[in-house]
Design a protein around this nucleic acid. Structure first.
Length: 801
RNA sequence: GGGGAUGUGGUGGAACUGGUAGACACGCUUGGCUUAGAACCAAGUGCCGCAAGGCGUGGGGGUUCGACUCCCUCCAUCCCUACCA
């Protein structure tokens, strides 16, 4: 054995031996199963620190669970469709498929060098026809189940490049490549009825062992609200405008209605009104993203049309407002300036009536809280909640409204006007769409001609035109479709004849899903929806795909997310080469708890390397003595044993319950520092040797999930060549942890003034007498009267003077 | 605009249930080893103060015998906002 720690020498050998044994290829057996899944990466070309962090967390837990005798399944694959491949194709004149394949090869080598215990036999990539065939099959089944429909919807349109742009491709209202002013355009798209599952998606959140913040985000995103649908008759017409409001109690304060610029009424009015037409044109300049619409200055235009207030009969003006979203509710907002901040701002700007109809202790408008009604005819004096009910009843009686539960969640538009994605398996005969038969799937993405840029599929005539009146759908699926069911396909990815099989039934649900917090809403909600819809068409079992969730924070540098555009990326590969995978893994786990963001620090990496070196130097050239524990241990020997077992207990809890790897590592470091020098001497007594051996085994076992190469290597050298460290986990000896004495904290007025060793069996009166006579405590109490004594057993005593 | 988080020494962080603030590291200082450096080892290290002691967890206020932890308020930063993944 070489005497210095050289990770480059040992890591590669150990990784090869794992490969040779097929150690992490998993099969159904009779142990308890554990499906540990980390979010698969987009193959951008290089692993970044966020990946390293994500995959190390997954690997630590997988290895720990294996040591605890679970049958662990940890697969890895590639979210291989998406925009960056098209961008790279344009920038570097490479085929998206070749670019993607090359990237996958590179990243796979990088992942392997990290020593991650994946079952590579289940590897999948979403751009393979073998994968997306089944996505097309699912689409058909969803269609047959009535979950799919076609609807017009808004996109960002670049009039120069004549392409649809993603939100991130619109910069300051301009196309990123052409620089042209982007317009909002309405086109036909495929939608999936996720809203049909809104109620269940909301309710079953409760059953999930997920972080509260993620559950809250999903709950707010789904946005269930109770209110009323209220109909306003257009003045001089039999037609109505319908609005939804969560505050029918404020109906007497309505001073205008605001409709979306995309509302059919607005579009109709623009036909004969230049001013309105120009206004709508101006609205089209704001990018389609919600954040941009919400941040844009609120402006509006009076249509000079009125509606009739359903209860007062007053005439109320209709405005068009750029802040009204067509997709939410009915695309019509009832403006109550006195009781809504946005309406107040709008009414102030355009000098519209502001009529207070709710009274609270607060008298500054807008009053958005509930209160008691005023200026509301015969509803005056009634509290908001009761008044809402009464007003809804009145509207029902007049047939001008009804009670309604509204969701913020919108149906999922899955059409994308791109090339590098899964073709939507539809044909059009005389413009009538038909989902193609399963037997004709997959509809393969056509290869690009040499030197061709990745033009949107819809512009590929050879693909689109089957015959004169039979055409193919030219859109591809949203890549969120690809990633919404991969967790299930991993279990059966080698099965070419069935989408799912007995492996799926064995492995699902995912026991632990690990990924970035940035996916807290969209990806996780889509996947949950997919699972429920797949369940209802009989393809999977259970109600939820991911039992437990761990959301890791971002990896930052200089306080910002690492990104190419900011030029603050740190390449993990150079660190793996310089320090070895174990050091990088240890650093990642030690430097920050997983849910928090991690600030990259150059110098701390050194510290992690140093610790592994210390472990190496302790164990190296030493040999397990194979002694039994029949010794009369001295006090300092007992202290070492106690420390070993207390550390083990803490580490188990940190790994399993808290996912708090940084404190687990700190505890292992403490144990290492705790071992007295004389225990390590060659001439040390057998009882000391026993204590040291025990500590060494524990350290290697506890550290193995995080730094598997060095620990496995040392385990074989120190303990037994033929023994598998990953098939072992020590047991806590609880009796060693029982102590007779503890340190009592003595406070005077809540401040620590002394501490003293106390026997656990001591009575309160006895403890008080000891505490009060501690020299420093005496000085502080002086001759003052003790007004109160607070005693917390086995912890502290506080004298209030 | 809305939703979700975070804020503790020079730095990363610990304090798990309202009960010892700063564990464990990084860095720095001093000493040892060395021709020198690196590495390693030992000691010290929140701030002010000679000390006694005082102050201290983004700012302000509150509850409590006791607050990093609970409540109110303000500020800063990060993530998501439905076509980046």
């Amino acid at each position: 054995m070489s005497s210095n720690y050289k990770p480059q020498l040992i890591e590669k050998n150990i990784q090869e031996s794992w490969d040779k044994q097929n150690k992490y290829v998993t099969r159904i057996d009779d142990r308890e199963k554990y499906y540990c899944l980390s979010m698969f990466p987009y193959p951008s070309g290089k692993l970044h620190m966020g990946h390293v962090r994500n995959y190390t967390i997954g690997d630590v837990i997988s290895r720990y669970k294996r040591m605890k005798n679970f049958n662990v399944f940890q697969p890895m694959g590639w979210d291989a469709f998406g925009l960056p491949a098209e961008n790279a194709a344009i920038a570097n004149k490479v085929n998206p498929k070749d670019w993607t394949s090359q990237n996958i090869e590179n990243m796979k080598v990088q992942l392997k060098s990290l020593g991650l215990s994946y079952d590579w036999s289940r590897e999948l990539r979403t751009c393979d026809p073998d994968y997306y065939k089944w996505e097309q099959v699912i689409f058909k089944k969803f269609f047959d189940a009535g979950l799919v429909y076609r609807k017009k919807s808004m996109v960002n349109w670049d009039p120069v490049d004549e392409t649809v742009l993603a939100n991130e491709q619109v910069i300051d209202g301009k196309g990123w490549r052409s620089g042209a002013q982007v317009e909002i355009k309405e086109i036909d798209q495929w939608f999936i009825k996720i809203t049909k599952y809104a109620e269940e998606l909301l309710d079953s959140l409760e059953t999930l062992d997920w972080p509260e913040n993620v559950k809250t985000m999903q709950k707010n995103w789904i946005g269930k609200s109770y209110g009323a649908e209220i109909k306003y008759r257009l003045d001089g017409s039999k037609d109505f405008l319908t609005t939804f409001s969560t505050r029918p109690d404020t109906i007497f304060g309505v001073s205008f209605l605001a409709i979306s610029p995309n509302h059919s009424l607005a579009i109709k009015l623009a036909e004969n009104n230049k001013e309105i037409f120009d206004f709508l044109e101006k609205c089209k300049e704001i990018k389609a993203a919600e954040a941009d619409i919400a941040k844009a200055d609120k402006f509006g235009i009076n249509t000079n049309i009125n509606v009739i207030h359903p209860l007062t009969g007053d005439k109320i003006p209709i405005w068009i407002g750029n802040f009204v979203l067509l997709d939410y509710g009915t695309g019509v907002v009832m403006g109550v300036p006195a009781h809504d901040a946005r309406d107040h701002e709008f009414a102030t700007k355009y000098k519209l009536d502001i009529k207070q109809v709710i009274e609270t202790d607060n008298n500054e408008l807008p009053i958005v809280e509930k209160g008691e009604l005023i200026n509301s005819e015969n509803f005056n004096g009634i509290s908001s909640d009761i008044a809402s009910k009464k007003i809804i009843n009145e509207l029902i009686r007049l047939k001008l409204g009804e009670e309604l539960i509204q969701f913020r969640l919108r149906d999922w538009g899955v059409s994308r006007q791109r090339y590098w994605g899964c073709p939507i398996p539809v044909t059009y005969k005389d413009n009538v769409p038909k989902v193609i038969d399963e037997i004709d799937m997959p509809v393969e993405l056509p290869k690009l001609k040499e030197d061709s840029l990745p033009i949107p599929l819809s512009q590929n005539k050879d693909f689109i035109e089957i015959s004169e009146n039979l055409k193919r759908e030219g859109d591809t699926f949203d890549t969120f479709m690809d990633s919404s069911w991969y967790y299930a396909r991993f279990t059966s990815s080698n099965n070419n004849t069935e989408i799912f099989d007995e492996n799926t039934r064995y492995w699902l649900p995912v026991d632990l899903y690990i990924g970035g917090i940035e996916h807290a809403i969209l990806h996780l909600l889509y996947s949950r929806f997919f699972h429920k819809a797949l369940r209802d068409i009989g393809l999977v079992e259970g109600d939820e795909p991911f039992k437990r969730l761990l959301t890791q924070g971002m990896v930052l540098k200089d306080g910002a997310k690492m990104s190419k555009s900011k030029g603050n990326t740190v390449d993990p590969q150079s660190y793996i080469e310089k320090y070895g995978a174990d050091t990088v893994r240890l650093y990642m786990m030690f430097t920050s708890p997983p849910e928090q963001s991690l600030e990259w620090s150059e110098s701390s990496v050194e510290g992690s390397a140093r610790f592994l070196k210390k472990v190496w130097n302790l164990v190296n050239k030493r040999k397990y003595n194979n002694l039994d524990d029949q010794f009369k241990f001295s006090e300092d020997e007992l202290a070492v044993r106690r420390k070993s077992h207390a550390t083990l207990k803490k580490v188990e809890n940190d790994y399993e319950v808290r996912f708090s790897f940084n404190t687990a590592i700190a505890a292992i470091m403490e144990l290492l520092n705790f071992i007295p020098e004389d225990f390590k001497y060659a001439e040390a007594s057998k009882s000391k040797k026993y204590c040291l051996d025990e500590a060494i085994l524990f350290i290697l076992q506890m550290l193995f999930p995080i730094a598997p190469h060095i620990c496995e290597h040392l385990w074989k050298e120190f303990y037994e060549e033929d023994s598998d460290i990953e098939a072992s986990w020590p047991k806590v000896n609880e009796s060693l942890l029982e102590v007779e004495e503890f340190e009592l904290i003595i406070q005077v007025n809540g401040k620590v003034r002394g501490r003293v060793k106390i026997h656990k069996s001591a009575e309160q009166e006895e403890v008080k007498n000891i505490a009060i006579n501690v020299e420093n405590v005496k000085n502080f109490i002086n001759s003052s009267e003790i007004k109160k004594t607070i005693y917390v057993k086995d912890k502290l005593i506080n004298f209030v003077i």
